[in-house]
């Protein structure tokens, strides 16, 4: 497989590992890894490096909702314009145009249910193109970006075996 694609897999599995360790796994030198990372970033393939946080284990209030949005397009306004306007809000953690019975899936984050519902009713719903919102509060997260938050399969292998 192409080294750049392999690098992407390695960053996806652990973006914090050192350049040297990545280089060893790819069988290339550290300078090559730096160069490939720069390329991935400048091409826009890699947009950031973030921790996967289990908010249930952080001692503070954190509320998340998945909001379904229906919008109405007109000659002047397309999905892109609406998306741009909604994406600007810092409360919007992710925004996707999706197929099916509604148009946008929006992840909204806030410190309380009140915060989140206020945000939806006062900032999102009044947007002229938005015809309907349905807010689903997240009650518990079990898996996030490929990381399972429950107990993994324990390693119960024998410590030494033939």
């Amino acid at each position: 497989m192409e080294a750049k694609r392999e690098l992407l897999d390695l960053l996806l599995s652990d973006a914090r590992q050192s350049t040297e360790d990545i280089a060893r796994q790819l069988g290339v030198d550290a300078a090559t890894v730096e160069k490939l990372v720069d390329e991935l970033e400048s091409e826009g393939a890699v947009r950031g490096y973030q921790a996967v946080v289990d908010w249930d284990s952080v001692d503070e209030e954190h509320v998340r909702a998945e909001v379904e949005l229906n919008v109405e397009l007109d000659r002047e306004t397309g999905y892109e314009e609406i998306a741009r306007r909604i994406a600007k809000f810092p409360e919007v953690a992710s925004l996707r145009l999706i197929s099916g019975s509604y148009d946008f899936a929006v992840d909204v984050e806030g410190e309380s249910m009140h915060d989140v519902s206020n945000f939806v009713s006062e900032q999102i719903a009044p947007i002229p193109e938005v015809t309907q919102t349905v807010t689903h509060f997240v009650m518990r997260t079990y898996k996030e970006r490929g990381v399972y938050f429950g107990d993994g399969d324990d390693d119960d292998r024998l410590a030494v075996s033939p």
Binding site: R157, L158, A159, V160, S161, P162
Partner: peptide
């Protein structure tokens, strides 16, 4: 292998690169 298995079994904080599976 058994002797090493027994040594390994007694240890805390062991990292094993001795596993054949």
């Amino acid at each position: 292998i058994r002797r090493f298995f027994e040594l390994a079994e007694e240890m805390d904080d062991l990292v094993s690169l001795g596993v054949g599976e």
